[in-house]
Simulated assay, not measured.
Amino acid sequence: MRFLVDAQLPPALARWLVEMGHDAGHVADHGLQSVPDRQIWEFAVTSGACIITKDEDFAQRRALAEAGPAIIWVRLPNARRRELLTWFDQALPAIIDVLERGETLVEVI
């Protein structure tokens, strides 16, 4: 699965996803860290990536759009990188399962 990690989340999450066998990059890897959300959205559509974000704007846009990238909306409280990666390690199989079933907006609480 291909993921694009948004700016509010650490680049370490993208690196970890690669270690887990996925195609992943952080917006900074693609020169997108300071661009409008619209450009991140378009990049995700073009590259076939699911956006992992803490930005509610992406979730709202996905809920209203007929097409576009899948969104994983992370609503966890701010945490240290290690805690975030531990959480993702436990949750990723369920997230992948939901995405493979065709869900386009996954809210992670």
Rank of each mutant, 00 (worst) to 15 (best):
M1N: 05
M1F: 11
M1V: 09
F3G: 02
A7F: 12
Q8F: 14
P10H: 10
A12N: 07
A12F: 07
A14M: 07
A14Q: 02
R15F: 15
E19R: 07
M20R: 15
G21C: 05
G21V: 03
D23F: 04
A24Q: 05
G25H: 06
G25I: 09
H26W: 05
H26Y: 06
H26N: 01
V27G: 01
V27I: 00
A28M: 07
D29I: 06
H30M: 12
H30Q: 13
H30C: 11
H30Y: 15
G31P: 04
G31H: 08
P36C: 06
D37N: 06
D37T: 03
R38W: 12
R38Q: 13
R38P: 04
R38N: 11
Q39N: 12
Q39T: 12
W41N: 04
W41Q: 01
W41D: 01
E42I: 01
F43D: 10
A44K: 06
V45P: 04
A49Y: 02
A49K: 01
C50V: 10
I51N: 01
I52F: 02
I52H: 01
D57L: 09
F58W: 01
A59I: 05
Q60D: 15
Q60M: 14
R61T: 11
R62L: 04
R62T: 02
R62N: 05
A63Q: 14
L64M: 15
A65Q: 08
E66A: 09
E66P: 04
G68P: 00
G68D: 03
G68T: 01
P69M: 04
A70W: 00
I71H: 01
I72L: 07
I72G: 03
I72W: 02
I72N: 04
W73Q: 03
V74W: 05
V74R: 03
R75P: 11
R75S: 10
L76V: 02
R81E: 15
R82Y: 14
L84G: 08
L84M: 13
L85G: 07
W87C: 12
F88V: 07
F88D: 08
Q90H: 15
A91I: 10
P93S: 09
P93K: 10
A94Y: 13
A94H: 13
D97L: 12
L99P: 02
L99E: 01
E100F: 10
E100S: 13
G102Y: 06
E103W: 11
V106C: 05
V106K: 04
V108D: 10
V108I: 15
I109E: 15
